[in-house]
């Protein structure tokens, strides 16, 4: 008989950020987060939970508790491949995949990720690609991703690139829609909306955990 060693850092309640759960749950149907019964079905269903530092169930508890730094700097949200296994099985109908993405967006917005980490860089490049021209140019995206994360991997990927080229599945052509201005107008309206929304989020509303 012995005691388990406690290696975890102590988190003090006064250091928590209760507004964090409000921010995350501001997505459509996000308020469902507060009905979680911590049953762990999500973690059991998740094909990636064994590679995560916190399981999906723990992430929900941490969001509700206001553990902002721990959630944003955990590996869990990055590993979510959005397969929606958790979301369809949850007995409380919590859309956990969408919540993972809300946390991911916040981490990206606040720059909480290691330098040259591919996932946020991929997201940024993809986003820019689409906002500029309406479509994603696959070949260019992959090239930019490699250059910005680990240029040495270009050699590693050369064989794959060559085979894709040979089979007509790879091109560096810039894909684009015709009416780019139309799309820009649509997105511009939402940029303004987004700012208004952020103010709403900051306004006092529901108490965390209620």
């Amino acid at each position: 008989m012995g005691y388990a060693k406690h290696r975890g850092k102590i988190r003090f309640e006064s250091d928590l950020e209760p507004d964090f759960s409000k921010e995350i749950s501001s997505i459509p149907e996000g308020e469902q987060l507060f009905s979680c019964i911590q049953c762990g079905t999500c973690s059991g269903m998740c094909p990636l939970s064994q590679y995560m530092d916190y399981t999906p169930r723990q992430i929900i508890a941490m969001i509700r508790g206001g553990f902002k730094n721990d959630v944003l700097s955990s590996y869990t949200t990055w590993l979510c491949a959005s397969c929606y296994s958790c979301a369809v099985e949850c007995p409380k109908e919590i859309k956990l995949t969408d919540i993972m993405y809300a946390a991911k967006r916040l981490a990206i917005r606040e720059g909480v990720y290691p330098k040259r980490f591919p996932i946020p860089i991929l997201a940024h490049e993809f986003f820019k690609n689409v906002d500029d021209s309406g479509r994603n140019s696959e070949g260019r995206l992959i090239l930019r991703l490699l250059l910005r994360t680990n240029p040495l991997r270009l050699f590693n990927q050369a064989g794959l690139g060559w085979r894709l080229l040979k089979t007509g599945r790879f091109s560096l052509k810039k894909e684009s829609i015709v009416h780019k201005g139309e799309l820009k107008n649509i997105l511009k309206v939402l940029e303004k909306e987004h700012m208004v929304k952020s103010k709403e989020e900051l306004a006092p509303g529901r108490e965390a955990g209620s």
């Binding site: 997505i27 993405y101 967006r105 990206i108 997201a123 939402l190 909306e193």
Partner: peptide, 9 residues
């Protein structure tokens, strides 16, 4: 990948 930046857009 796009949704990782903005869900609204």
């Amino acid at each position: 990948a796009y949704m990782s930046i903005s869900e609204l857009k």
